[in-house]
């Protein structure tokens, strides 16, 4: 919107990006968050396989249909681990709580961060 893609951030880590259903299909932000991440200095951005598929959070779905939600989350977490990333980034904290909780229980050593946290990182 502002035409800015370089926000002057510095984040020297291996990162993969989950685009989230809401950003992708409701808001239609396209690849703009990715463009912002690409300009972050020091970052190694790796593609997430099956990125566009839902992580399985879905609000009350996560507890009303916990088994299905967990099955989806487990697949998403597997894709994240396959990238070898240290950090999973997304623009939606509820996805991050769900995928992050799964990655944590799996002792995967992958942490989750919100897009804004990375764009605000300077050191």
């Amino acid at each position: 919107m502002l035409g800015v893609t370089d926000v002057g951030a510095y984040f020297p880590h291996r990162v993969t990006y989950h685009p989230t259903c809401h950003s992708l299909r409701m808001l239609g932000v396209g690849d703009r968050p990715r463009q912002l991440l690409e300009q972050v200095r020091g970052i190694t951005l790796v593609d997430l396989p099956g990125a566009e598929e839902c992580c399985g959070f879905g609000g009350t779905f996560a507890v009303k249909n916990a088994d299905t939600s967990i099955a989806m989350g487990t697949d998403k977490a597997r894709h994240v681990r396959d990238t070898g990333a240290e950090v999973l980034v997304a623009g939606d904290n509820s996805c991050l709580m769900h995928i992050g909780g799964t990655l944590s229980r799996q002792r995967s050593g992958v942490r989750t961060m919100h897009l804004a946290e990375i764009l605000a990182a300077t050191a």
Partner: peptide
């Protein structure tokens, strides 16, 4: 109606 994560696909 609850059998969906409302992902929109």
């Amino acid at each position: 109606p609850y059998a969906s994560s409302l992902c929109g696909a």
